[in-house]
Amino acid sequence: MTHIMACIDNSQSSLAVCDYAAWASQKLNAPLTLLHVLDEEKYPASADLSGNIGLGSREHLLEELATLDAKRSRLALEQGQHMLEKARERTVIFGAAFPELKQRHGHLVDSLNELQENIRLLVIGRVGEDSKRGVHSLGSQIEAVVRTIHRPILIAASNYKKPEKVMLAFDGSRTSHKTVELLAASPLCTNLPIHLVMVGADSEGNREALEKARNALLTHGFIVIAQILQGEVEAALHVYQAEHGIDLLVMGAYGHSSIRRFLVGSTTTTMLRTATMPVLLLR
């Protein structure tokens, strides 16, 4: 787990991915790798015509189509290499050390799964090049990546803004306390104020859990603002984010609590779809 790995494609998110990856690389003092995966469903590596022998004139047509597919794949690979080189130029300008470039042919999730032993933090855009370009669009592969890659994941916003205020969504569960510990131990958010926000009843138990989490962050030198909010989780978090100028949302990636269920599961991706800021998922 040594590298920051950033997924680069031709989407509207890629510039922001480069910038957040460069920021994270500097904060974590970790080398940066830029990854481009050419989807094998759109660009097959080769065509198998072994089952089409004896089709006469149609066989010739199929061979021509296979040749065209091969040419498209080659051009797509060249375009991907060009994107990676431009991405490297941008991350260097933003202060990252000279990044390594990787190009794979296959499926994004499979490629990341093969590489994840060397991933310290994955940076990926909220939408890919094939996704709809709406305000609340979310890439079709994000949930699969979150489920499969057991590493911290920074899901970039559409436009980069250097994080200056962090909101950690907290629910008092064991997983949530673990998220606090992971954030406290990481240099990613050092020198940034942490807004520790809990949505729920203002009960003695919740106050005790919030105080325990606050003390864990204070011990590591963070400035902490702890709050218990009322209302629906998603709406309360968004209102707080807007009122306090939060630049980065930190959450645990899994679970069934009222906060974490918005990310993965039957209700899926609601927070990611509506968030206007980057989201850091910890596990």
Rank of each mutant, 00 (worst) to 15 (best):
L34H: 06
Q230R: 09
R72E: 07
R214V: 09
A226K: 12
G56Q: 00
Y43F: 15
V197H: 08
E89H: 10
M1R: 13
E114W: 03
Y254I: 02
H244T: 10
S131D: 15
G54L: 00
I225E: 10
D39K: 02
E114G: 14
G95P: 02
Y160A: 15
D9Q: 08
L188V: 13
I225F: 04
L182Y: 10
E89I: 08
V109T: 07
T91I: 11
Q141Y: 02
L249T: 04
H3S: 09
H82Q: 13
N10K: 12
L75E: 13
H105I: 07
S257G: 15
V166R: 11
N118T: 13
R283V: 00
R120E: 12
L281M: 15
F222G: 07
K86T: 07
S111L: 07
R260Q: 10
T67D: 13
S266W: 05
A66F: 05
E234C: 08
H238K: 11
S73T: 13
Y240M: 08
K161A: 13
R104W: 04
Y20D: 08
E78D: 13
A6R: 10
Y160D: 11
T269S: 03
H220E: 12
E100G: 03
L34K: 04
M198P: 01
T270H: 11
Y254G: 01
P187G: 10
I93W: 04
V37W: 01
R90A: 06
L263S: 06
A47E: 11
A184W: 01
T175K: 08
A253M: 03
D69W: 03
V17W: 10
R104K: 12
T33I: 03
A275Q: 04
S257K: 10
A21N: 08
T268E: 02
R151I: 11
R214C: 03
G172K: 12
E64S: 14
L210R: 06
L38I: 04
G128D: 07
E181H: 13
L35E: 08
A236I: 01
A76R: 12
E129N: 05
F170S: 06
P187I: 10
T274E: 10
Q12F: 06
Q241Y: 00
G80W: 04
S258K: 15
V279W: 06
G255K: 10
N29Y: 00
T190Q: 13
A226T: 11
E64W: 05
H195T: 05
L138A: 02
G245D: 01
H256C: 05
R261Y: 00
T33G: 02
L229H: 03
R90D: 02
M167P: 06
D171A: 01
V250M: 06
L65M: 15
Y20G: 03
E63H: 12
E243P: 01
A45W: 05
S137K: 04
H238D: 08
L248T: 04
E208L: 09
K42E: 08
R74S: 14
L77G: 14
M271H: 03
N118S: 15
E85A: 14
